[in-house]
Every structure is written in structure tokens, then in C-alpha cells.
Design a protein around this nucleic acid. Structure first.
Lengths: 338, 338
DNA sequence: ACATAATGCACAACCGATTGCGCAATGCTG
DNA sequence: CAGCATTGCGCAATCGGTTGTGCATTATGT
């Protein structure tokens, strides 16, 4: 085994091997040799030598000279739910298709970590930075713009860069309507629906609450403040909300609008611990998880359309200078309605 | 908005601003100035100027000159299950703690994509490459070693680089034993257990089958070949297996050892479609998912110990030259036993 | 045969940080 | 006050590609 760095091959070595010059080797290897009037024959020879010697370009050197890194960055709250992990996966695949190298950093919904990650991305000279579900997208946008790096917001919108998000309001309205239909099927169309989870500071949660209310209003129903509990994204936050509801009303709500799968997990845990049966209640969840869906075929779930979101995202990336006010809303899908 | 690249600040600019030289600025900014006998006072001035001007080092230039990128790479089959996504997340956090920048690529269990991703990683001059669940870790290891890049295998072992994996055999044995205990509680300790999912070409699947058999043998039970169905990782593969079993035996097995959550999803779907009730059967799954667990408290699940695996992984990364034969097995946890 | 154009390729200056080395200024010793 | 050590810092080469420019050589036109 190599004891120390075994000096990798450079274009200078290849030039010697092929009896040519570094600049010619460079042009041949990066495909610009046609413009430089290199002969077919020499190009072939150089390519053969390079392949034979297992040459691999040094991207650092290339990026330094070209003043373009070929890297595109994304910051993300976390990987471990289906929505965000599929965002990461599809983003990466799409980036690769365009010859870009994607680097993704998790920032745990923490503004400090978001800033630090963005700094790192800037230091690595990413060509664009995608801020997914960022708690403070505008601060990041300011930082990046000061360094000449454009940003795009995904999932949560900002005011200083274009944004691609789900149509939260209409998605929530459709989900709530589906819940109301279920209640009607069960013969209690007037029963209260509890809204649980999310952060009221989030644009998305506010929009979902608005959609929730619109659906109720459309049926001539009330939406009392006390039934709307954006208690955060952690699963554990759901228990106190349910405890309080039960204490006050002596009975469970007939339906629950759950604002994320992580909240759903907390609610399910509470039902298990309390010995309640989830199938007595109509559940609608603004988020999708295949295992949750298959174990609860009666659940209503909203699946955000990640492939289309990423498509629109790359439209923005490709278009030179999208207006920072652009807000693109993608319709999600309601699963569980017959 | 900037029409074109707005020339970022370099150490040459800072040198002018601070009335000093580029080499001094460099030393001050990268912390090596003590060795270069720069005065406290000048260092402070330069730091102030840099902070004031929002300077950000160019990592490409640094990496080129230092001949170290500060980047560590990982290839991964996919993000979208809890096991792999937590690997990615914890790996990234640990890398960051060490001042390394983690880049992760999904390769969809496709040897071609694995090779291509490894090539990219090499071009970006990663300092090490972690091959997680690679279908062909040895080919990647050969490629990387030829370029002087060390690799480490995670989740699936290889013969050309050290490996950190779960103790699949003992984990499977413990899971099977737990299943047998459940069957005994239910009064049918001799009933057949079906093993479904995974690839027989995978080391892990083979070891799990071995552990499965050991547990049966320990109770004096048979493990007929026909009950062991490593039908792949896709969920859809489970249905034909279950169909065939049902056709032959006219009844469902009393217990199923499920080899992954994706297979579990396929099985659950089949049960729904066929109108069978999953609670009639004892389920053990070699994999863990919090939503699956909370919706099925009676499931036995194996949670692989990702934090410890990543810990050991970084032990290997930090140790100069681990023997390529090193195989570190981490004990997983059985969830669902009282 | 001579001027002109096209072809084929190499030279050398970069990109921005790092680092071995050396020089000037100051401090200290005798 | 000469002689030597120490302090403080800048010079210039370097990492490995990229690219504007220019110089031979060959082909074409008259």
C-alpha cells in the first residue's frame, strides 16, 4: 500500500507521454479541442494515453482557473422523512443530469447551522444555493447575494429570492374537504376537527390553517381558535395538546388534521399509550409516508409533488435571473379519497 | 442585481486594504501565523479587515495548493429509508465536527452508477471514500486505491478495504428467537416461519439467513429451503412469494421474518389487497422505521446501531492505515420484546 | 513563384491560496 | 560598539488546469 500521497497524474505527465503540450492535452480532455484546431489524430492519441493511464482531472484546479466550480449546493432541515429525503435524492439526480455536482447539508431547522452551512457552501464556491425549508431564508439570501451567489427557496418561501413551494392553502383546503366528506359518511358532518402540528411562524403552516378554515367556512362551519394547535414539529408536542382536548371535552375530536408525519408519529404514540383506537377517528395528514399509508389505508394523506417541484426549481436555475419575487406553487396530491 | 460575476475578494485585496502582504494575510486567516512570527497587532488588523469585508476563502485554491481537499465522500444506495437516511445525516454531522466537508451521492444499488459516482468523487479529490451498501465495493476499492484514495465499506463488507457492518447473523438469530418466543406464547411453537426479502448475493442477507437457521436449530426446528425467499429489495417482489405460499399450503405462515422495511411495505400492501389481517401473524423485521413501529406495536423490529457504526467508521478514518481485512460488526437492537 | 489564408499546435499568463526562504530591523551580550 | 540572535514580515515559486495569442507549416489562389 502507498505509504504517502502517490503523486497523481497531471496533464503535464500526459503531455510528456503523448509527446504533446499541456494546453493541447487540456483542450482534448475537456472537449474544447475542436475550437482549437487540434488534429483528430493527436486528439485520439491523447485520449488513449489518458484512458490508459487512468487519468482523472483535478476539479479544484479546473474550478480555480475557470472560476466556476460546477457545484450546486442545497441546505435541508433533515434527511429522515420521506418528503425531504426524496427532495435530496431527486435534486441530486437532476443536478447530475446537468453535469453539476450536488452537495447537500442538513441544518436541523437551526438558523445558526443554516448560516454556517451557507458559509461553507460559499467557500466551496457553489454556483447556486437552494435553501430548502429554511427557517430564515432571507438572511441566507442576503449573505449569499453579498458574495454574488444566487439562492432559490424551496418548500418555504422567502422575499429575497424566487421560491418553489407546494400550494399549501389549496392542498389543506382539499384535505380538509376530504375529511369533512368522511365525517359526513360517518353521519356526523358537524363534528369538530382538530388541527395539530407545525409552527405558526412558518408560512406553510399559516397557509394550511387558512386553507383549513376556508374548507370549513365553505360548509358553513366554525373554526374555533382553540381547535387550531400549531404546537411545533416534534412528535412529543402532540401529547399535551391531546391531553388538554380530552380534559376539556371529555371526548376525542372526530377528526384530526395532522400537519406532518412527525406529528403523526407523536399522535399515534399517544393513542397507543392511552389505549385509544385510531380507526375511530378520521385522520388527514399534510405529508405522506408509504409505510404510514399502507398500515392505515383509511388515512387521508397529502403527497407533495416533489418531482415537479424539482423540475420548476431547475427551470429557475437555468433561467438567468428570475425575479426574486417569483413564487411558484405546486399542487399536491390527496391520497386516500376513493 | 449583479449582471456578471462581481469579482470576489482575495487575499491580495485584503493585503492592500490592510497594508500588508498576501502571504501574511493567508497565514493570519488560516491560523498558522503564530509559526510565522506575525505580530499580534498586525494579525488583529488583518482579521478585522477580513471580517469587515466579508472575506471568504476560496476552497478550490486552498485545496489545490495544500493538495488536500478537506472533503470526504460517501456513496449510498438511496436516501429514502430510515436506515440510510440516518447514516447520511450522522455521517455528515460527524464529518463537520472534524472540519471535513461531507459529500454524499446516491447510486441506486447500480454498479455502474457506483463507479461513476466514485470517479466524480476522485476528481473532486475526496480524502477518503465511504462505500455504503455498495453492490460491488471491491471494484470501487480497486479504482480508488489506484488513485491513492482509501475506501471504507459500511453496511456491506468488502475484501479490499476495512468494513463496518451490523452483526447480521446474531441480530437475525436474536430476532428469530424473539419470533419463536412469540409463537410459543401463542401456543404454536412448531409453526413454520417464512423468510422474505433481500438478495442472496448480499453478504448481509446470507448472514441473516444463517442466523435465522441457527435460531431454529437451537430449538430443534427445521428450516426448509422453500421457506427462505430472498426475493430482492423491491416491495413488489413479496406478493408472488406470498401467493405461492398460500397456494401451496392453503394457509398463511404463522410468522414472517421480513428482511427490510421496503419488503415490509410490499407485504403490508399484499395483506391489504387480499383482505388478510396482519395481526394474526407474528412479524419480525430486520430494519426499523418509527412510523411502522408506532402503528404496529406488536411488530418485532431490529434497529441497527447507526451512531455506533459511524463512530467506528471515523475511528477507521482517523487511524492511518487500517488493515483491509478489518471487519467490525456492531450489535443491533431488537425492539418490541417486552 | 509569391502572396495570402488556413491549419495545427505550443507558450505563457493566469486563477487564489500556501509556504520555504531570506532580508531588514531590533534586542541582547560582552 | 561590534557581533550574534531574535523578531517581523514580504518575495516568489508552486499546486494543476485553462485560454488568449502567436508562430510555424501547409494549402490555396493568381
Amino acid at each position: 500500500m502507498s505509504t504517502e500521497v502517490p503523486k497523481r497524474l497531471t496533464i503535464y505527465d500526459l503531455a510528456k507521454l503523448a509527446g504533446s503540450s499541456p494546453s493541447t492535452v487540456s483542450a482534448v480532455l475537456n472537449g474544447t479541442w475542436q475550437n482549437r484546431r487540434i488534429s483528430e489524430k493527436l486528439a485520439a492519441r491523447i485520449l488513449a494515453v489518458a484512458a490508459d493511464a487512468d487519468y482523472s482531472v483535478n476539479m479544484q484546479a479546473r474550478a480555480l482557473r475557470r472560476e466556476r466550480s460546477g457545484i450546486i449546493g442545497m441546505i435541508l432541515p433533515l434527511y429522515d422523512n420521506r418528503y425531504f429525503s426524496s427532495i435530496a435524492q431527486i435534486f441530486e439526480a437532476e443536478a447530475r443530469k446537468r453535469g453539476l455536482f450536488a452537495i447537500v447539508s442538513c441544518t436541523n431547522r437551526d438558523p445558526q447551522q443554516e448560516q454556517a452551512a451557507a458559509q461553507m457552501m460559499i467557500a466551496h464556491r457553489v454556483e447556486k444555493l437552494i435553501c430548502t425549508g429554511a427557517t430564515d431564508p432571507d438572511s441566507i439570501a442576503r449573505m449569499c447575494h453579498a458574495q454574488g451567489v444566487e439562492t432559490i427557496n424551496l418548500d418555504l418561501p422567502g422575499r429575497l429570492a424566487p421560491s418553489v413551494i407546494s400550494d399549501n392553502r389549496n392542498g389543506a383546503k382539499a384535505l380538509t374537504t376530504a375529511i369533512l366528506d368522511r365525517l359526513e359518511d360517518r353521519g356526523n358532518p358537524q363534528d369538530p376537527i382538530l388541527f395539530v402540528g407545525g409552527r405558526i411562524e412558518d408560512h406553510n403552516t399559516r397557509e394550511r390553517i387558512a386553507g383549513f378554515r376556508e374548507a370549513l367556512t365553505a360548509r358553513g362551519l366554525e373554526s374555533p381558535e382553540e381547535n387550531i394547535m400549531p404546537c411545533g414539529y416534534s412528535g412529543a408536542r402532540a401529547a399535551p395538546v391531546l391531553d388538554a382536548y380530552l380534559l376539556k371535552h371529555k371526548t376525542l375530536p372526530s377528526a384530526i388534521f395532522v400537519n406532518s408525519t412527525i406529528t403523526l408519529e407523536g399522535i399515534a404514540r399517544w393513542f397507543n399509550e392511552q389505549g385509544h383506537n385510531m380507526s375511530e377517528i378520521v385522520f388527514g395528514c399534510f405529508d405522506w409516508d408509504p409505510l404510514a399509508a399502507v398500515f392505515n389505508p383509511h388515512f387521508l394523506m397529502v403527497r407533495q409533488n416533489v418531482p415537479v417541484m424539482i423540475d420548476r426549481l431547475f427551470d429557475l436555475i437555468d433561467s438567468p435571473h428570475a425575479p426574486s419575487t417569483a413564487l411558484i406553487e405546486i399542487q399536491p396530491e390527496i391520497l386516500g379519497v376513493q
